[in-house]
């Protein structure tokens, strides 16, 4: 059980960290670009919200498998396949949770607007300096809530991890898939414990995000 929790937490933490690194520049670009390409990319980034996880998992399985289009790239890194590995789970989770990291960050960047950037530029701050010393601190609550949301959402995902990971004990089995397996094995007691734990965790995560929003909802003056 401890191993499963460890795998789950590790997966959620790694996914959150990677998504912060991806969603921050991507959210910045989407918030500020008026290029049509930004609209298209923005739409693609939201796809995981509506796509059945099995569809996403299916495509990822093909893409990451030994015959997949990414096999060549993987071979370059000395890997044969990511299917049914922890790394594969991470890739799947990153894609599946992308909208949850992107939305709060993008919305906050849009709310911050042009004024603080103009002010920073008039005070000799280069664009990168302004981004680091003004935009990121002003967006900190949104970054936190994006990380928390991603973490919680990754802990709660099921379809994608089952498709890509296959719920292999000790490698790719996480809490959500082990509930499924406990029920299949007729172990209602374990399933109940896990489900209750997940419910409590999810509730706390949502509460935390709400509190963050309330605490930091002020906009720049």
């Amino acid at each position: 059980m401890a191993g499963i929790i460890m795998t789950t937490v590790e997966l959620a933490a790694v996914t959150s960290a990677i998504l912060l690194l991806i969603a921050t520049p991507l959210g910045w670009w989407l918030a500020r670009s008026r290029h049509w390409l930004a609209e298209v990319v923005g739409a693609i980034a939201l796809l995981p919200l509506v796509l059945p996880p099995t569809v996403l998992g299916f495509y990822l399985l093909i893409a990451l498998g030994p015959e997949g289009p990414l096999a060549l790239l993987l071979g370059f890194f000395g890997l044969h396949t990511l299917a049914f590995t922890f790394s594969g789970l991470v890739v799947g989770s990153v894609i599946y949770s992308l909208p949850f990291a992107l939305q709060p960050i993008r919305a906050r960047f849009e709310a911050i607007g042009q004024r603080p950037l103009d002010a920073a530029a008039s005070l000799r701050a280069s664009p990168l300096d302004a981004f680091c010393s003004v935009v990121v601190p002003l967006a900190r609550p949104a970054l936190l809530s994006a990380a928390l949301l991603t973490f919680a959402h990754t802990v709660g995902e099921f379809g994608v991890v089952l498709m890509i990971g296959g719920s292999i004990p000790g490698r790719t089995q996480v809490l959500s898939t082990s509930i499924f397996e406990a029920i299949e094995a007729g172990d209602t007691h374990t399933a109940q414990q896990l489900a209750a734990g997940m419910l409590l965790f999810s509730l706390l995560a949502i509460l935390g995000i709400r509190l963050l929003d309330r605490r930091f909802s002020r906009l720049p003056v």
Partner: peptide, 16 residues
Amino acid sequence: YRRPIGYVFQDAGLFA
């Protein structure tokens, strides 16, 4: 950011 100007904005534009 490379021009030697000071700029006072209509709404002050202070960093919150």
